[in-house]
Computed example of a mutant assay.
Amino acid sequence: MYAAARTLLHSILFAILILFLTGSSEEFTEAETAYSEPSIEGADAPDIEERPETPTASSPESISPAAIRMSSIGVEAEVDDMGYTDNGGMEVPDNGEDTGWFSPGFKPGQQGNAVIAGHVNDRSGPAVFYHLDKLKKGDLIEVIGESGKTITFEMESAASYPYDDAPIQQIFGASSERSLQLITCTGEFDNDAGTHRERLVVTASAVER
Score class of each variant (00 low, 15 high):
Ile48Lys: 06
Val128Met: 02
Phe20Met: 00
Met82His: 05
Gly88Glu: 09
Ser39Pro: 00
Ser72Arg: 12
Pro60Lys: 12
Gly88Cys: 05
Glu30Gln: 14
Asn87Met: 12
Arg6Asp: 13
Ser71Ala: 15
Asn113Leu: 06
Leu9Cys: 07
Thr54Cys: 09
Ser72Cys: 04
Gly89Asn: 02
Asp86His: 04
Met90Ser: 14
Ala34Asp: 12
Pro126Glu: 13
Asp86Glu: 13
Glu142Trp: 01
Gln111Asn: 06
Ala77Trp: 03
Asp47Pro: 01
Asn113Phe: 04
Ile18Glu: 12
Ser124Leu: 07
Trp101Ala: 09
Gly105Gln: 03
Glu78His: 04
Ser24Leu: 13
Thr54Arg: 08
Ala31Tyr: 01
Ala66Val: 01
Asp94His: 10
Glu37Asn: 12
Lys134Gln: 14
Ser25Glu: 15
Leu13Asp: 15
Ser124Asp: 15
Asp81Gln: 10
Glu49Arg: 07
Pro126Gln: 07
Leu8Asn: 12
Ala77His: 02
Ser39His: 10
Pro104Arg: 03
Val79Asn: 00
Phe28Gln: 11
Glu61Lys: 03
Ser58Lys: 11
Gly83Gln: 04
Ile63Thr: 10
Ala67Cys: 01
Ser72Pro: 03
His10Tyr: 06
Asp86Leu: 02
Asp133His: 12
Val92Asp: 02
Pro52Gln: 10
Leu140Ile: 15
Ala31Trp: 01
Phe102Glu: 07
Thr56Gly: 12
Thr7Gly: 03
Ser64Val: 15
Asp44Cys: 04
Ile68Met: 12
Pro60Asn: 14
Tyr84Ser: 03
Pro46Thr: 08
Thr54Val: 15
His10Phe: 04
Lys107Gln: 11
Pro52Phe: 13
Glu142His: 12
Ile48Ser: 15
Ala15Asp: 15
Thr85Trp: 03
Leu8Glu: 14
Pro108Gln: 12
Tyr84Thr: 06
Gly112Leu: 04
His131Arg: 13
Lys137Pro: 00
Ala31Met: 15
Lys136Thr: 14
Glu78Met: 05
Glu49Lys: 03
Met70Gly: 02
Ile48Trp: 13
Pro104Tyr: 05
Ile40Asp: 07
Asp98Met: 00
Glu91Met: 13
Met70Ser: 05
Leu8Phe: 05
Ala67Tyr: 09
Pro65Val: 09
Phe28Glu: 11
Arg51Trp: 15
Tyr35His: 14
Ala15Tyr: 05
Leu135Pro: 04
Pro46Lys: 00
Arg69Gly: 00
Asn95Lys: 00
Gln110Asp: 15
Gly105Arg: 02
Glu76Ala: 11
Asp98His: 08
Glu78Gln: 11
Glu53Pro: 00
Ala114His: 10
Ile18Tyr: 05
Glu30Ala: 13
Ala67Ser: 14
Gly105Asp: 05
Pro65Cys: 07
Gly138Trp: 01
Asp139Glu: 14
Gly42Asn: 10
Gly118Tyr: 01
Ser103Lys: 11
Ala15Phe: 03
Asp94Glu: 11
Glu32Ala: 07
Ile68Gln: 02
Ser62Ile: 11
Asp44Leu: 11
Asn95Met: 01
Tyr130Gln: 08
